[in-house]
Design a protein around this nucleic acid. Structure first.
Length: 210
DNA sequence: AACCAGGAGACAT
DNA sequence: ATGTCTCATGGT
């Protein structure tokens, strides 16, 4: 019924692991429609593979991904992604790491922060990870379920709290994240007070689980 | 016409 | 250790 209220079928459309990684960087502070255009442009030039991307001048990549915004910043970050994959020995080798080690490795790449790393872990590598992003922390706090505060470490504290109390499968965590973001975008923005929207099946279900 | 998006890093206090 | 600024395009 969580899926019934907030359908999450193609929340993160992708054809490959590396495409998820690229999308995770491109979507930073950006709407997905614009990311989709940039990814389509990359695909048209066959740049959705680490080797091809690494061999392409950063400025050219920036031109290709322009619809996603912040082109110079993101082009550099994509270059770091490609270089990181190569240095790690390829995607197959990457996938063999434990979730903890893989997170640390992704986080060591310039431009991959906490949320981007977890998005890659969850949607790219199918690991059971809770993305404790801005929407999730605000929603959990407003529901009175968990207030991670606003200081440093809030993200990790919130993520661990949910993961230790909600032993869900990767697919369920994927649906949960999508539902929280959709819920936040539609009913519960920064200025909205989040009232009636939080008393349905969805919220009570999560409420009972935490 | 301002304002902001499915963030992260640099920088000033 | 905690705020503020910047990146930049495209939609409201």
């Amino acid at each position: 019924m969580l899926l019934a209220r907030y359908p999450t079928d193609n929340w993160w459309p992708s054809r490959s692991r590396f495409e998820v990684m690229v999308g995770a960087v491109l979507v930073q502070n950006t709407r997905w429609v614009n990311v989709h255009r940039a990814i389509a442009a990359l695909r048209a030039r066959r740049l959705l593979q680490p080797e091809a991307l690494a061999a392409t001048p950063v400025d050219h990549v920036g031109e290709v991904i322009r619809p996603a915004g912040c082109q110079s910043v993101k082009a550099a970050r994509l270059a770091h992604l490609a270089a990181g994959v190569a240095q790690a020995g390829g995607l197959r080798r990457l996938a063999r790491h434990s979730t903890h080690d893989l997170r640390a490795l992704l986080r060591s790449w310039h431009g991959v922060g906490e949320e981007t790393a977890d998005a890659i872990l969850l949607y790219g590598f199918g690991r059971p990870v809770f993305i404790a992003d801005k929407y999730a922390r605000r929603w959990l706090a407003r529901m009175g379920l968990f207030d991670a505060g606003s200081g440093a470490g809030a993200y990790a504290r919130c993520r661990r709290h949910v993961e230790t109390n909600l032993p869900w499968s990767p697919g369920e965590f994927q649906a949960l994240h999508a539902a929280i973001v959709l819920h936040g975008q539609q009913h519960c923005g920064p200025q909205a007070r989040c009232q009636d929207c939080c008393v349905g099946d969805f919220c009570s279900f999560i409420n009972n689980s935490l």
